[in-house]
């Protein structure tokens, strides 16, 4: 039985790698400006290899609806079968080595992320204890952060944090934009999504980090659009971005801190997108649903239709070939 479980885990790792490399190759084809929004496809590009690999590796052990167990029919390769686990014994060593290598490769990232999460949770708890202030029916925390910034933090109940100096320096319209932008992040549960995607990237060290950055960028564009809807003027959102950028440019940053995730391109792309008056969020939501449905249907097909003996037997044959 141990051999079957180890083999299943090895199939998971291989499928994650194969689908991940496929996704990485496809993402290079998509020009950044041509598909900036919606954000869901970028989130799915990170999650999809894991979902497919999980479904695929589990599907290998589902009773096939189309044929009987073929373990007894031939013995020229090992069999991944819960009914006859002894037939998978030859796979124990190679599968364990593969899974071990994968665990070794993800360990540093997992430790880093875990430590960062503990640190963040402690800090967010401390900020949450600050007295909340209601601004335009939104609960916010004002702080002297030392940086002209506004951010949303926390997974279960995100809090909006506004820098006092920035708030004082902004005009009424800019303040409204900042507030609605952050409300967009809360509404979309972006901190939670960010955490899930980062954890997924840790499990797939071969996936390019640019996929996560493109999700981040798309999420910002969506929240800019959310703010534009509420203030009724995309150019007001663009102006608020520039206002915060001006406050930021006056900061005495160290040289190595000059480039952010997107550097100046992030701001420029967001302002341009707002001025270009891109499609309404209704379309974006429809695209999101389609983007979710297509891979889900693919996974469903993989689990219910394809496995049969075809995928199962194909994987076993390949493993058997590698084994011999």
């Amino acid at each position: 039985m141990t051999a079957v479980v180890a083999s299943s885990a090895a199939v998971f790792v291989v499928l994650t790698l194969v689908v991940g490399l496929l996704v990485a190759a496809l993402s290079r084809v998509v020009p950044e400006r041509a598909w900036a929004r919606p954000s869901t496809p970028w989130a799915l590009s990170i999650l999809l290899p894991l979902v497919v690999a999980l479904a695929g590796s589990l599907a290998l052990f589902l009773p096939t609806p189309f044929s009987a167990c073929h373990c007894a029919a031939h013995d020229h390769h090992p069999h991944l079968c819960f009914a006859h686990p002894s037939l998978a014994e030859p796979l124990l060593v190679p599968a364990s080595v593969l899974v071990g290598l994968w665990l070794l490769s993800i360990a540093p990232g997992a430790v880093r992320l875990s430590l960062a999460l503990v640190r963040s949770a402690r800090r967010i708890r401390a900020v949450r204890r600050l007295a909340p202030v209601r601004v335009d029916q939104t609960e916010v925390r004002f702080v002297d952060s030392g940086v002209p910034t506004a951010f949303t933090a926390g997974v279960r109940a995100p809090i909006i944090v506004l820098d006092r100096a920035m708030w004082a320096a902004l005009g009424e319209r800019d303040r409204e934009v900042v507030l609605y932008h952050e409300r967009g992040h809360v509404h979309r549960a972006d901190p939670l999504t960010s955490l899930v995607l980062r954890a997924s990237l840790v499990l797939q060290p071969w996936l390019p980090r640019s996929l996560f950055e493109r999700w981040q960028h798309a999420a910002e564009l969506d929240c800019d659009r959310h703010a534009a809807e509420h203030v009724g003027d995309p150019s007001a959102v663009a102006a608020a971005l520039v206002s915060v950028g001006r406050l930021r440019s006056a900061m005495p940053f160290a040289d190595e801190a000059l480039s952010g995730v997107f550097g100046a391109d992030g701001l420029e792309a967001r302002v341009t997108a707002l001025l270009d008056d891109q499609p309404a969020p209704g379309g974006s939501r429809r695209n999101d649903v389609i983007a979710i449905l297509i891979p889900l249907l693919g996974v469903l097909a993989l689990v219910t239709v394809w496995p049969g003996d075809v995928l199962h037997h194909a994987v076993e044959t390949v493993i058997g070939f590698l084994h011999h």
Partner: peptide
């Protein structure tokens, strides 16, 4: 990992 900012803080 669990924070999104109006503009990248750095």
């Amino acid at each position: 990992a669990v924070l999104v900012a109006f503009l990248d803080s750095t």
